[in-house]
Amino acid sequence: MAGEPQATVVAVSSSPGHTFGKPGRDVIRVLAGLGVEGDAHCGATVKHRSRVARDPTQPNLRQVHLIHAELHDELREAGFEVGPGELGENLTTRGLDLLALPTGTVLRVGAQAVLRVTGLRNPCAQIDGFQRGLLAAVLGRDDSGALVRKAGVMAVVVASGEIRPGDTVLADPPPPPHEPLRPGLIHAVMRAA
């Protein structure tokens, strides 16, 4: 709609190793069905070590991790020092409420890349190893008392392409009824793919 702020990519990050944070890059390339080229989590089957230990043949529904820069702003206001890529995300965005997107939302990023949102990132205790107290800061409660996970969303790559800081992000939700994002494997996404 006219007058609405445009969502953009603030930073892109990747790491060839299973590191907590990911260094910033000038550009990343996402590969359809695999993830971020050269990233430790790139592949058709799961790459997160805890999931590999349970079943290495599971489909990789966590190919790309996105965090909204507004979370970094909130964490800074709470006294934490967190920048793009430091929580393990591949894409840092601004101007898009990632957590409010329904499962299966298609994100068109830059000129060619297309992602499909699969679920919420479930933050783990490692986050407190980065900064003490950070795990509690990325968890909250809504008005009904339900747990709110604020550590971003996970996605799969539908169409390959390069992504750079400054690229636009357009969100295209699936047809209703909408299913809210949940942590873990989202089977509805597999049916929609």
Results as ranks from 00 to 15, higher is better:
2 A>I: 08
7 A>R: 00
9 V>E: 08
9 V>W: 06
16 P>Q: 09
16 P>R: 06
17 G>V: 14
17 G>M: 10
20 F>L: 12
22 K>C: 00
22 K>H: 02
23 P>T: 00
26 D>P: 13
28 I>G: 10
28 I>E: 09
31 L>R: 13
33 G>E: 04
36 V>T: 10
38 G>Y: 05
38 G>E: 14
40 A>T: 02
45 T>G: 08
45 T>N: 14
49 R>M: 09
50 S>D: 13
53 A>V: 11
53 A>H: 13
53 A>W: 11
58 Q>V: 04
61 L>H: 11
62 R>P: 08
64 V>R: 09
67 I>R: 08
70 E>W: 04
73 D>C: 00
76 R>K: 10
78 A>E: 12
79 G>D: 01
82 V>K: 04
84 P>T: 01
86 E>Q: 15
87 L>V: 03
94 R>C: 05
94 R>G: 00
99 L>R: 14
101 L>H: 03
102 P>E: 03
107 L>Y: 04
107 L>C: 08
108 R>W: 02
110 G>T: 06
116 R>N: 09
116 R>C: 11
121 R>F: 07
126 Q>A: 14
129 G>V: 00
133 G>M: 12
135 L>H: 12
135 L>T: 05
140 G>N: 07
141 R>V: 11
141 R>D: 07
145 G>R: 09
146 A>Y: 10
148 V>I: 15
154 M>E: 14
157 V>T: 12
165 P>E: 12
165 P>D: 12
173 P>D: 02
176 P>F: 02
176 P>I: 05
178 H>A: 10
182 R>F: 04
184 G>L: 07
184 G>R: 05
185 L>D: 14
192 A>M: 15
